[in-house]
Amino acid sequence: MTRPEMAGPGKTAITLAVNGTSRQLELEPRTTLAEALRNTLGLTGTKIACNRGACSACTVWLNGQPVLSCMTLAIDAAGQEITTIEGLAHGEALHPVQDAFIEHDAMQCGFCTPGMVMSCAALLERNPHPDAEAVRDAIAGHYCRCGTYPHVVAATLAAAERKP
């Protein structure tokens, strides 16, 4: 019987496609995607708050789906399109959800905000005209200690209104 090829436990070559750019990294297999983004690629917009999958602050997209980067091994993300908060806007033009977050003040300390934005934007990509309950479901796993939920829901609904 063939044994599958092993990577690690030391650093191993991992290619990640982040925000449309292919990045060659040397990482231990135990590195989480959140750690790789923040510590290796310097993309610190992705936040780690609970580091155990309980707060969703670390939400990024894998192939367009919101996932928790703190509960994903970087090596598992190889071969998938990774989108982080830094890659959501198109140049100067913010994603409609980002614009709406500013207008509706859907942030306070802002630490949960990048993750919230990623989840709400992913919702609108999949469901351009959600109702309030769909928005709530999309952010059900997010914690915001400052209590921005009402403005987050309002902002996301407003962004949906604005979308063609």
């Binding site: 044994r3 599958p4 090829e5 092993m6 990577a7 436990p9 297999p29 135990r30 091994l73």
Partner: peptide, 19 residues
């Protein structure tokens, strides 16, 4: 987390055997 190696087998049988 401790350091670990990582394997990604292509079949269930391989996976079962890997551990």
């Amino acid at each position: 987390m401790n350091r670990f190696a990582y394997a990604s087998p292509a079949t269930v049988t391989e996976a079962a055997a890997a551990t």
